[in-house]
Design a protein around this nucleic acid. Structure first.
Lengths: 218, 218
DNA sequence: AAAAAATGTTGACAGTGTCAACACTTTCTT
DNA sequence: AAGAAAGTGTTGACACTGTCAACATTTTTT
């Protein structure tokens, strides 16, 4: 299959990869002016394509947003996993590093993160692929918790439940941080580290039945 | 004529308290169908008043939303304070009870809570009265923390900072819960109690008074 | 080559927030 | 008390949005 030209010199009626280009263009727009400013007409305009061309590739606006969200979870997944890997290399607390990476991602990609958790997109249950991708990112957290439990560093509660608790903490930091209620970026990162540290101190020992004091093993 | 007729009986050009009625009507609408479904035309229609009457009392739509948010923070403030008072009476952990009350409020008044933290309303800094009311609610948390510190039950870090950490946790639970990512209402409440409990366990004792910032065991 | 499917375009529509110009009512000034 | 001024509610209009139907063009299939 011959490669088509990217530009439309004159006879280029069909765009080589409009679907991907639409996602990219939409992403640039929300990066620049926020999710709420995204208009289908602008997306088309930016690609030199008509305002409704989008409808051949997405059912409606929320489908486009869902696609952006999916793309976001992909990168997010990768970012979190990378943070855990780095922690392992540098002998740091993987959960704490992941928490910081989480908040960092949200602060550095505010519009994208907001889109990922927007009410406008279908509830995850309705979009199987989106739910799958989101679950993938969540699994990084669950797996890390399970690993920490196997290493005997945190209490042995249901990992999924613990994951939800930790998730809520960093998600709260992210959303409040983006809203400007927690100070500047570096304030928020410090706060994230503080939060994780405090939370994980709480997770470290069950107060009553803990007999073995695992104070600074190693 | 105690009853307000939809058709104006001729002498009723001016509404006795349109401003308040607008707020009430808007509140009913968002309670029923969510914040995004709120339209200025509907608000007017519901009161038998024209679509633009609202502009004599609010600068624009976001001003109305800001007013709803302010009203929300008033109730919220009261709710949190009441939870702390009840905890004091029942000899329960005031922070934990407040945390549960926080999440409960958000889940029971989802649209209202979303409005309070919506991007659409002016940043709190721009609305002095809104910021004031929000600060009032936040102060309940800070004061409770300070009291717990005086009672020697939690570590003596900056109360405002601790408050931010706790706030982030419950706010995260609330937003994820509303999005349906944490199960049903009762799941979320249990999770909230769990979260607070874990967090406060972490706050309860620094492993050794000398080194508060213990790096993670490795 | 003809038919069918895919893809892109134009025109149109209902709904939205908002403003300007006007109408009615209350309050203030003299 | 009469007129002015300010406050409050109404209608008409505008630009902008998402979305659909009908049409145009290109690619793929038969």
């Amino acid at each position: 299959m011959a490669v088509k030209l990217k530009r439309k010199p004159k006879g280029t009626y069909h765009h080589p990869d409009l679907q991907g280009a639409l996602v990219e263009a939409a992403l640039q727009i929300i990066r620049k002016n926020g999710v709420d400013s995204l208009t289908l007409r602008d997306v088309g305009l930016r690609l030199g394509v008509s305002r409704t061309a989008l409808y051949r590739h997405f059912k409606d606006k929320s489908a486009l947003l869902a696609r952006l969200a999916l793309e976001g979870f992909r990168i997010f997944h990768q970012t979190l996993q990378s943070a855990v890997d780095q922690a392992s290399i540098n002998k740091k607390d993987p959960l704490e590093e992941m928490g910081v990476a989480y908040v960092n991602f949200a602060m550095a990609n505010q519009s994208h993160y907001k889109t990922m958790f927007s009410d406008a997109i279908c509830t995850w249950g309705d979009c199987p692929d989106l739910a799958l991708e989101a679950d993938g990112a969540f699994a990084v957290l669950v797996n890390t918790i399970a690993a920490e439990q196997r290493a005997g560093r945190i209490i042995a509660e249901d990992p999924a439940r613990l994951a939800q608790v930790i998730w809520a903490g960093v998600h709260g930091l992210a959303t409040l941080g983006m809203a400007g209620h927690l100070g500047n970026h570096s304030d928020i990162i410090h706060l994230a580290r503080h939060h994780c540290h405090t939370l994980f101190t709480g997770l470290r020992l069950a107060p009553s039945k803990a007999t073995r004091r695992t104070k600074s093993a190693s």
